[in-house]
Measured scan of single mutants.
Amino acid sequence: LVRYRTISKIPQITLNFVDLKGDPFLASPTSDREIIAPKIKERTHNVTEKVTQVLSLGADVLPEYKLQAPRIHRWTILHYSPFKAVWDWLILLLVIYTAVFTPYSAAFLLKETEEGPPATECGYACQPLAVVDLIVDIMFIVDILINFRTTYVNANEEVVSHPGRIAVHYFKGWFLIDMVAAIPFDLLIFGSGSEELIGLLKTARLLRLVRVARKLDRYSEYGAAVLFLLMCTFALIAHWLACIWYAIGNMEQPHMDSRIGWLHNLGDQIGKPYNSSGLGGPSIKDKYVTALYFTFSSLTSVGFGNVSPNTNSEKIFSICVMLIGSLMYASIFGNVSAIIQRLYSGTARYHTQMLRVREFIRFHQIPNPLRQRLEEYFQHAWSYTNGIDMNAVLKGFPECLQADICLHLNRSLLQHCKPFRGATKGCLRALAMKFKTTHAPPGDTLVHAGDLLTALYFISRGSIEILRGDVVVAILGKNDIFGEPLNLYARPGKSNGDVRALTYCDLHKIHR
């Protein structure tokens, strides 16, 4: 019993810090008490220290592992850092350059016999395009090294910054494609005289377009951006097909006994025919423009016929181009109408809503002055909100995010209106959640004399007048207030005048 009563005193000691020596009952000389009392004092002292730490809000209350900052290894790049964003855009520009100039170089340097010394005699450094290609190869190699040090988000939505895990993730992902696209074939085969082989191998750079397509997928929600990307894709495919079309004609031209190829026909049409040795002929500019003209006309199913396939190889390629053109029509131009419709969806919704308003007016036989006010209010409210119901949009977000959005939407009023000066951010967040926005066209009466005042109004834009009878008592403008002081009276009061809008007004109100 003594032991039980001794232990039962522990909660009292913990909360009230009572010393055991003052209790005459606990001072009985028993061996059990002498053993338990020192333990009680020690526990009391420890609990006292913990309570003191909690009340003082000291940093040592938290466990040590929670006080440590997340460790980022040296030379690790955050995937959302500004440097990584700028670097990704730079790589994107280099990939676009590669997609345009690599097929052009591979096709127009394929057994090209233009006048001038061969590239091997001039030297590697004197070729501007080769120098640019070398810079692109170096940048792609540097990009691989950067990807080995860039964080990523795993399946659990955690940012991984450990170098080993980053390397394994990159090896399992895009490393092989990036490595093949970054191989400097110019340096590996330079001086061997195989410019045709170098041009063909350099087309491996186009593998990076797969990554670019995935990154550009984030802009699919913007109709104008999608339309622009589709047109660029169409032009890029036409450019690639033009390079292939020229390569076919250029390879067949020296081996044909009869002059029936499209390059021969082009030379005869523009007065620059090929001679018996295969030299001469149109310039590279004429060849490229004509090839691009043929691919565009074939892809769009126009086909004027002034550039036509004559050999079997050219006919087979033309059939493939027609098939590609039909697929592009289905996948690209078939979506253009939907994209344009999405661009004008706001206008369509406006006309639909206006039609419903006019049908309501016609069905209920609203008189002319009231009908005009109804239409003007709808037009003004639509121009202010673009038909978007803010309350319906915010309803799907958590309250903390709703408060931040409301604070942002009402920031101008909260910053410049005098009653809100000096208020804490928590108070402003709470008030912003209570605001209701209303609009009024010129001549609209917001409050009639004798109406119950259940709200306090803040003028965000425009001006109003307060009338008693036919006498203008006051004219209020931006950041002015009218209405009933909230919670100042037990019952809502009545208006002693009319409140009429002089201009288009936007008002925020808080109800009782």
Rank of each mutant, 00 (worst) to 15 (best):
H351D: 03
Q379L: 06
S412V: 09
A181K: 01
W245D: 01
S298N: 01
P282W: 01
G426T: 04
D186V: 09
T102I: 08
E221G: 13
T300Y: 05
I284N: 04
L374Q: 01
T120A: 08
A182Y: 01
E115P: 14
P398S: 04
G191R: 13
M251L: 11
D286T: 01
V136Q: 01
V289W: 01
D217W: 05
S412T: 13
H364D: 03
A155T: 14
V100L: 01
T150S: 10
L109N: 07
R371Y: 01
N275T: 09
I248S: 01
G173W: 03
V447N: 03
S105H: 15
L414D: 01
I183K: 01
I248R: 01
R71D: 07
I77W: 01
L236K: 01
S313L: 13
G123V: 08
L187W: 09
K434W: 01
T437E: 05
H380K: 10
I72R: 13
I198F: 14
I332A: 03
F140N: 01
S194A: 10
V136P: 01
V168F: 12
W87A: 01
V160K: 01
I260R: 05
L446R: 03
L394W: 02
F140M: 01
S283L: 01
C126D: 01
E196V: 13
V132A: 05
D137A: 06
L209A: 08
A119T: 04
L134W: 04
Y124N: 04
S192W: 14
F363C: 09
A242N: 01
M322N: 03
I177D: 01
I260V: 10
L206Q: 01
L323M: 15
P441F: 09
L428K: 15
H364A: 08
L431S: 02
G116H: 11
I177H: 01
R342D: 04
H239P: 01
A381Q: 11
A338H: 15
T385C: 01
A238G: 03
Y170D: 01
P82W: 08
W382K: 05
Y104P: 01
E158C: 05
G191S: 09
S298M: 14
L327K: 01
I91Y: 01
L409I: 09
G123Y: 15
